[in-house]
Design a binder for these strands. Structure first.
Length: 254
DNA sequence: AACGCCGCCAACCGCCTGCAA
DNA sequence: CTTGCAGGCGGTTGGCGGCGT
């Protein structure tokens, strides 16, 4: 036996909302709140709509703090990084973007970001790029099929791999802040980077912390530390990517 | 101008979860 | 502990507008 529907679909209006309906819903919520009961709200407000439909309309469109307009490069970066790490948990991803809804983020991913990231993976021929593109490329390095973005199951698998952390003071790079700028003035950090170099023969500019993230800064001209000093003026990000990918699959670093 | 295709996005559907009775 | 309900969530759909032919 299936679940009973939340409302009688033959008695409620469906489809696009009219400006009048928007006004009624907005005024009712602003004057009375939701009352903690979306199912009863349309009746109280005088709307012939399903409670779920009212909730969706309010959350995704009428809420006063909704951010309209296109997504910024920074938002794209956050979305793609989070997607690779936690999968299609749109509400969680949206919670990291002020004024964006899960529906917004989901639509943006499905219509634009997915294609954008796939194309950036297929064109790794430049030697300098933006941080967003570099993050994307690293994420896609983990895919067995380059045309397919990381599914949640695989993302979950990578979450189970032990992750190296340089020291407590640097353990601030988590999925909420994926593009941490490295603290290269930290003595421990420099020691660890040196150790990393000696053990692996790799560039000090690529490393991981907390949740699988490479940490660096790219101002478009090269990589810098947190003070803006150049670490490497002419780096090849493809090398960085491969180092990070190798590093990511190891649990024997420090 | 008419038509078809395609991308975007608002809205719906149905499952899952949490909670109260 | 079980049951039923409402909210929350992610997947999917369908209408609309822009664009090319």
């Amino acid at each position: 036996m299936g679940r009973s529907p939340c409302c009688d679909k033959s008695k409620v209006k469906r489809g696009p909302w009219s400006p009048e309906e928007d006004t009624i819903l907005r005024n009712h919520i602003q004057n009375h709140g939701t009352g903690g009961n979306w199912i009863a709200l349309p009746h109280k407000a005088g709307l012939k709509r399903c409670g779920k439909s009212c909730r969706l309309r309010w959350l995704n469109y009428l809420r006063p703090d909704i951010k309209l307009g296109g997504f910024t490069e920074e938002e794209d970066d956050i979305i793609s990084s989070l997607y690779v790490n936690i999968g299609s948990r749109w509400s969680v991803i949206a919670s990291h973007l002020r004024g964006r809804t899960d529906n917004d983020v989901k639509n943006h991913w499905n219509t634009k970001l997915k294609k954008k990231l796939s194309s950036s993976y297929n064109s790794t021929t430049t030697t300098t790029t933006t941080t967003a593109t570099m993050t994307t490329s690293i994420n896609l390095m983990r895919c067995s099929d380059p045309t397919t973005l990381l599914p949640k199951q695989e993302a979950d698998y990578y979450q189970t791999i032990p992750k190296p952390i340089f020291d407590d003071s640097m353990n601030v790079a988590d999925y909420q802040q994926p593009m941490m700028i490295s603290n290269s003035n930290d003595a421990n950090f420099n020691d660890n980077v040196s150790s990393f170099q000696e053990n692996q023969g790799s560039s000090p500019n690529a490393f991981l912390m907390g949740n699988n993230y490479a940490s660096w800064r790219d101002n478009g001209d090269g990589m810098t530390n947190s003070d803006g000093d150049f670490l490497l003026e002419d780096f090849d990000f493809r090398q960085v990517i491969s180092e990070v990918a190798n590093f990511n699959h190891s649990s024997q670093w420090f």
